[in-house]
């Protein structure tokens, strides 16, 4: 009799367990941001490309410029208000010695983008100009701003969607960047 009783309780408890699991699952969904998709590129090398410099159309860069040291690749445009919001912080990071490459994504015009850099400051070591957004598609970019963390081997380690600010840098991007830098410097000391 005890055996069947226990079984009965188990059968009765099953829907309750399922209900609780579903509640937790849905509750988590309430607080998660559906726009934060993990990049399909994580752990993979950056895609091949050939893009002109934003200031000088005759200079072109390839994916080789994203290799050789840890760096951030920041996707931005003048039509993107959040990019303006994060720009001051990128300037700040750049002054701290963080290596940032800019990828201008489908901007209204080259002149407008250059004007932005001249007036708001240029935190980028290099400025790539992706006029038609084709390279951005290869990176899986679906909006701006997006910031990719790239290691010295030119592999994407992380993708951050949304603005880079003090909190994001302190909790998410900064620690990963610092770890990559440490690894990179240690590798440099032992040739």
């Amino acid at each position: 009799m005890g055996q069947t009783n226990r079984l009965k309780w188990l059968v009765l408890a099953l829907p309750l367990i399922a209900f609780l699991w579903l509640t937790i699952f849905l509750l988590r969904g309430l607080f998660s941001d559906p726009t934060e998709l993990s990049s399909a590129l994580v752990g993979k090398p950056v895609p091949q490309f050939s893009l002109p410099d934003i200031y000088d159309p005759s200079t072109t860069y390839t994916e080789a410029v994203l290799k050789g040291r840890p760096m951030l690749l920041n996707v931005w445009a003048t039509w993107c208000p959040t990019c303006r919001a994060e720009h001051a912080y990128l300037n700040h990071l750049s002054r701290q010695g963080v290596y940032i490459v800019g990828l201008n994504y489908k901007d209204d015009s080259r002149a407008k983008a250059v004007d932005w850099l001249n007036t708001l400051g240029d935190p980028y070591q290099l400025n790539l100009f992706d006029e038609r957004g084709l390279v951005a598609i290869d990176f899986g970019v679906y909006g701006a701003p997006e910031t990719f963390l790239i290691n010295a081997q030119g592999e994407v380690m992380y993708r951050h969607v949304g603005d880079v600010n003090e909190r994001v840098w302190a909790t998410i991007l900064g620690p990963q960047y610092d770890a990559l830098m440490q690894e990179f410097e240690q590798a440099g000391e032992q040739p």
Binding site: L37, S38, S39, A40, L41, I137, D138, F139, G140, Y142
Partner: peptide, 8 residues
């Protein structure tokens, strides 16, 4: 598409 944007 999946290679760039994931299974999503």
């Amino acid at each position: 598409m999946v290679a760039r944007y994931g299974d999503f």
